[in-house]
Computed example of a mutant assay.
Amino acid sequence: MGEDVRSRPVRADARQSIARILDAAQSVLTGDPSASMEQIAATAGVGRATVHRHFPSRQSLLDALVEDLNARYRSAFERARVMTGPPLVGLYRLTEMAFELKISHPFVIGLTPTAQSAGGPASDPEMQEGLERLFVRLHGAGEIDVDDPAWCRRLYVALLHEVHELPSGSPALAAATDTPADGVGARVELLVRTLLGALGGSRRRAP
């Protein structure tokens, strides 16, 4: 019992150090993708040895950044209540959070050539399954006609990437909403309108 009590502050300190290092890495590498581990350590306010203790290599740090982004996507999925609330509302909430993560984590999003598979719904099996369950719910609610959740998920992920890449002055964003076209809301509205239009649904057939 005594050993467990003594070990808890160490584990908490380690988690805090890892969180600081990951936040620093995201910030430093966004500005300079070739930045050294020493620069990351300085920004995190820890010693170089601390960084290397948690991340023995640069690749291990990059892998941890991707996993951290995946964890944030999974958290967003839960907070959006896509499995318990109205599915269309969940789609809007999840999409908003996904765009916010893309904006706040540009380095990790850009780690792979396609940028779509650097963490998140494109590469995480748990998120893939969750998205497909969401599209099953959307189909059951009559929001979409297409009864192929895997295809719906792939289309959604592709749209996330393409809409994220649109410049803020894009006519497509300006036409999507009355809100400022450079905000997240315009991107969410454009994606959801485009997605539902492509997948059909009884709501769009109603007079």
Rank of each mutant, 00 (worst) to 15 (best):
A64L: 12
L65T: 12
E67K: 09
N70L: 07
A71S: 11
Y73T: 00
A76Q: 05
F77A: 03
A80K: 01
V82E: 02
T84Y: 10
G85D: 15
G85I: 05
P86Y: 06
P87Y: 07
P87S: 01
P87H: 00
L88H: 07
G90Q: 06
L91R: 02
T95M: 08
F99L: 03
E100M: 09
E100T: 10
L101I: 07
L101G: 00
K102S: 04
K102N: 04
K102T: 02
I103V: 07
S104V: 04
H105G: 12
P106C: 02
V108W: 12
V108A: 14
I109D: 14
G110K: 09
G119Q: 03
P121T: 12
P121H: 02
A122W: 00
S123H: 06
D124L: 09
E126G: 14
M127F: 09
Q128N: 10
L134R: 11
L134K: 11
L134G: 04
V136F: 09
L138W: 04
L138Q: 10
H139D: 12
H139R: 14
G140F: 08
A141F: 05
A141C: 04
D145S: 14
D148Q: 13
D148C: 13
A150D: 05
W151R: 15
W151A: 15
C152K: 04
L155K: 06
L155M: 11
Y156P: 04
A158S: 11
H161Y: 10
E162I: 03
E162C: 03
E162H: 10
V163I: 05
V163N: 00
E165V: 13
L166V: 06
L166H: 11
L166G: 11
